[in-house]
Amino acid sequence: MTLTDRLIAPGATRAEVTLGFSVAIGGAAGAAALAIRAHHPWPVVAVIAVLAFDLFGGSVVNAMGSAKRWYHRPGRTAVHHLGFVAIHIQPFLLAWVVPAFSWTAAVTIYVLAITGALIVTVAPAPLRRPIAFAVTAFALLWVTGVLAVPAEVAWFAPVLLIKLLLAHLLPEEASR
């Protein structure tokens, strides 16, 4: 399996690869610029840029046909999808390197992602898509309206939730 197969998906088209990496690089550059403007030291800027590369790129890549076919191939279960969500410990990495990003915010974001993923994966298949959007919308209400996070990483929770709950968990819909 090539690096592109691992980062995008096996069988990704040239357009998918270009789009995925372009969005990842753009997100990393934008997040790094915000971190620099907030006067974070270079190691913190680097961590934020890597997290942004993963989340921005992943939010687009996981919505692509090749990734949908890969992550929702025969034999994949809710346990696989929940495991994918669970390994996204980025909120804790952010709390570790950005002093104003609290551990409470990290735990809240992580719990919202896991709880949202549980709700989506147990929902009846015909309702999974609208439920995923509902859960994400309510989680966004919480993370943007209740949690206090530094402005330079305010993008983090919304992009993480989009990547996991909307892009990753939802299988490809058949064309009509």
Rank of each mutant, 00 (worst) to 15 (best):
M1Q: 12
L3F: 02
D5H: 15
R6W: 13
I8W: 08
G11V: 05
G11L: 05
A12F: 05
A12E: 12
A12Y: 10
R14T: 13
A15K: 12
G26A: 08
G27N: 05
G27S: 07
G27Y: 06
A28Q: 01
A29D: 08
L34C: 09
A35K: 11
A35F: 06
R37V: 04
R37G: 09
P43G: 01
V44N: 07
V44T: 15
A46E: 10
A46N: 06
V47H: 13
V47C: 14
I48W: 07
A52Y: 01
A52Q: 01
A52C: 07
F56R: 00
F56A: 09
F56L: 07
G58C: 15
G58L: 03
N62S: 11
S66D: 08
S66E: 10
W70T: 04
R73Y: 01
R73Q: 12
R73M: 08
P74C: 02
G75L: 03
R76Y: 08
L82N: 07
F84Y: 15
V85E: 10
A86E: 10
Q90I: 00
P91D: 06
L93G: 00
V97D: 08
V98M: 10
P99Q: 09
A100L: 09
W103I: 14
W103K: 02
I109L: 09
I109S: 10
L112T: 03
G116V: 08
G116R: 01
I119D: 00
I119T: 06
V120S: 09
T121P: 04
R128H: 06
A132L: 14
A132K: 10
A132H: 11
V135A: 02
A137C: 11
A137H: 07
L140W: 13
V143C: 02
G145D: 08
G145Y: 11
V146K: 06
L147Q: 08
A148D: 11
V149E: 00
P150F: 08
L160D: 00
L160A: 04
I162H: 01
K163Y: 04
L164T: 03
L165K: 12
L166V: 14
A174R: 15
S175W: 13
R176E: 06
